[in-house]
Computed example of a mutant assay.
Amino acid sequence: MQYHLVKYISRLVCLLPAKLRQSLGRLVGWLCWPLVSAKRRKMAIENICRSLKVDEQQAYALAKASAVRFGPMFMEVLQMPCLTKDNIGQYVKINGREHLEAALKLGRGAVLATAHTGNWELLGASLAMHGFPLVAVVQRQTNAAMDSFINEYRTKAGMHVTYKQGVREMVKLLCAGKIIGLLMDQDNHRDGVFVEFFSRLASTPQGAAALGRLNNAPIVPAFITANQDGTHTAIIHPYVVVEKTADRGEDIRITTQHLTKIIEDHIKQHPHEWFWLHNRWKTRPPAMDSETTNRQIK
């Protein structure tokens, strides 16, 4: 029932003029902001103040913008059936396409390292529609109806969908020359590697670096940002290759740190587009002596 309701709403959204669709998205975002708990708002504001060195008033504005933007994002996801290979260029412009093409020419597949900034769903869909063999590695939604809905739209856009638990499938697809898309900016309390993020140690997913090292595959950082006119720009960086030594753990840590710094630099340029409502520093690093701690955060 829920699945069919969302599909019906999606059809209605696709019929709306672009300006009306954008206005409704902003309205939805503004209406949802009061529903964000005071505890989560406080956490976001504190993290923004500490990370960006701004005052509480500026941090509040950024936290609010970070939350409100989910309204337009939701409308853009509902609009995805309107997007095709023929018209995707009108909605998403790609800067740095040559970097992803160069990575694929190596013949070892590629890992796309991205973050929860901008409309990351649109990033994957647009790359697939531009002809790149993208595999979306996703988290299974607790709501089965919404899980089916979003995966259906991902597949229609041309993406292959696999869940995070499917490591063997990821390796197989990577060896077949596919692009494995991974989000690597959320707290990983189970098997993350601690690297510096905004001058604090953060437990970070090591999947991108681990996959890159395993298959000697290039890792391509990529993001998407919204433009004032409602269109988007995908930003693709030059690829990174894991320098392989006898110390696998250190190879992964060094590469993860490098990728995390690229993510941090992007967030600094577009702070309102990152998901500040997530507690990125939730997992504490293990007890270390002061000398080790100082060495890691320099």
Rank of each mutant, 00 (worst) to 15 (best):
residue 2 Q to W: 10
residue 4 H to Y: 12
residue 9 I to Y: 14
residue 9 I to P: 08
residue 10 S to N: 03
residue 12 L to G: 15
residue 18 A to N: 11
residue 19 K to M: 14
residue 21 R to D: 08
residue 23 S to K: 13
residue 29 G to S: 10
residue 30 W to N: 11
residue 40 R to P: 09
residue 41 R to W: 08
residue 42 K to T: 14
residue 46 E to C: 09
residue 47 N to I: 08
residue 61 A to S: 14
residue 62 L to R: 02
residue 63 A to V: 01
residue 83 L to V: 10
residue 87 N to M: 11
residue 91 Y to N: 08
residue 95 N to Q: 12
residue 96 G to I: 07
residue 108 R to T: 11
residue 109 G to K: 13
residue 117 T to N: 14
residue 130 H to Y: 15
residue 130 H to A: 14
residue 135 V to Q: 04
residue 136 A to T: 06
residue 137 V to F: 03
residue 144 A to C: 12
residue 151 N to A: 03
residue 157 A to Q: 03
residue 160 H to M: 12
residue 165 Q to H: 15
residue 169 E to L: 09
residue 173 L to V: 05
residue 175 C to Q: 07
residue 181 G to H: 04
residue 181 G to I: 04
residue 184 M to G: 13
residue 186 Q to W: 07
residue 186 Q to I: 12
residue 196 E to Q: 15
residue 207 G to H: 05
residue 208 A to Y: 00
residue 209 A to C: 01
residue 214 L to V: 02
residue 215 N to H: 12
residue 221 P to L: 00
residue 222 A to N: 03
residue 228 Q to I: 09
residue 234 A to Q: 01
residue 239 Y to W: 10
residue 243 E to M: 05
residue 244 K to Q: 09
residue 251 D to I: 00
residue 252 I to S: 01
residue 252 I to E: 01
residue 253 R to L: 07
residue 253 R to E: 06
residue 255 T to V: 03
residue 255 T to S: 00
residue 256 T to G: 00
residue 258 H to W: 04
residue 262 I to F: 01
residue 266 H to G: 03
residue 269 Q to T: 05
residue 272 H to R: 13
residue 272 H to E: 11
residue 278 H to L: 09
residue 283 T to Y: 00
residue 284 R to D: 07
residue 285 P to T: 04
residue 296 Q to P: 09
